[in-house]
Design a protein around this nucleic acid. Sequence first.
RNA 1: GGGCCGUUAGCUCAGCUGGUAGAGCAGCAGACUCUUAAUCUGCGGGUCGAAGGUUCGAACCCUUCACGGCUCACCA
Length: 472
Amino acid sequence: MPQSVPQAAEFEQYLRWPITMVPDPAGVEESYARANEVELEGLLSLVGIEPDYIYQSQRYRTSAYAEGIRAALAAREQIRALLNEHRTQPLPDDWWPVSVFSGFTNKDTTTILDWDGEWDLTYRCDESGTSETVDLRTTALVKLPWRIDWPMRWQFEHVDFEPAGKDHHSEGGSFDTARGVSEQIYNWKAPVTFQYDFISIKGRGGKISSSSGEVVSLRDVLEIYEPEIVRYLFAGTRPNSEFAISFDMDVVKIYEDYDRCERVYYGVDEISEKKRAKERRIYELSQVHKPASEAPFQIAFRHLCSLVQIADFNYERALEMARVEAGRPTLSEADRVRLLRRAACAERWLADFAPEDFRFRMKTAEQGLVEVGSAEAAAIAGLAELLKNQWDSLTDKALAEELYRVSRDAGVEPKDFFVVMYKVLIGKEKGPRLAAFIRTVGRERVVALLERYSGDTSSGSAGHGGKGESNE
RNA sequence: GGGCCGUUAGCUCAGCUGGUAGAGCAGCAGACUCUUAAUCUGCGGGUCGAAGGUUCGAACCCUUCACGGCUCACCA
């Protein structure tokens, strides 16, 4: 019973039913099967995949496969022999190349009694003990098992290209037997194929496991990665090699890799001609829409993580900070849309997967003060003074130097001063590189936080404390 | 048991149709005293899992072996 079904007990009754007849647990779609289709189709379009869908359930429901099913029945012994080639246990004597759902209980617990050589199939419902004869041309109850269903559909839909996972491509796997069935029974040449490897998930903190039943879907991936980057993961990896979609620190690296690929594509980064051609192609394949004519404005993911937090998760403000930093007059609408989504991914990642070191929240003037010693208070006051008076002339580098000067003037070890500053600004002992951080946060906000320490002083002491927990 | 895929610098991996090996991260050093995977610069010699073979020449081809992982023989 999948985790996505909250009413597990109530749904017990549908076990062994065709999934197309099981109701949607959410009560929205016509069936559980359809609900899953709708979900997937919606997600696929987000990454730019918009196929014409063929619904097998409709094919079966309308008896479109009647000919194919009859052909399988007629070739019963031939198919049995083909399948037995790769089986440890030969198929039992009463085996038929079809499976039947009971018209009485909807379950697949049935026994086939007879086939008349044409369209009539007689079966018994094991639970009710009732028998009936159905016509293949009108019934929706008769299906082909996978290894026969697959080749039958190759012929029916005229499939000439179908890659598949390595489970199908193992010797004796379903592609193997399907090829035989397709060519010998259905007179259809097996499609061109290749084998792709599996994709795994990394960095979800051990929660993901088959035993817990937690499943990671494209939806989860898209909460962390932009659609283009999801495509990039696939475009940049050979199909037949395994890779993992990471939710841990690798996320930062993947974003950086993608951004570099983008810069190469637009000729911003120089690279050898050989590699360039490859990177360009990977970039093209990664796009959901046509690549823009101009290089998009980039904000590094890791930097955006900081900006988004400084801006208290107001994405627009985060982008505005980045724009100002980069000295750009404006942001194009396309850039805005893209970066807002990236900001949302950053927030999601910070909340769910980022190491603690990445996370912080700006202190507000309403929050209580942290304890600081008198010397430290003096240093803070000195810095506040400096920021008020010389803000416009301070570069990152100049400010960094001033930080040392200010703290030494007040008789505070720079190392301790940094700790105090982080506590004052974000309530932690560490944080982003201080000088650049202060400049990004902005004068008003920093000064407002610092000036609160100008008045009375208490005799606290700045404590130390190791902090090095990382999850793995 | 069969099949597939790996085994390249500490780590993660690139190396197209063979010409004697590379990128990121870490690490080290330096940008006046530094703080996290948000700055910049310089530095890395690893018997390319092992042994044979083909070749003028192999990490890339062939054979065998070792180790690791996945997969099939139930189901869609």
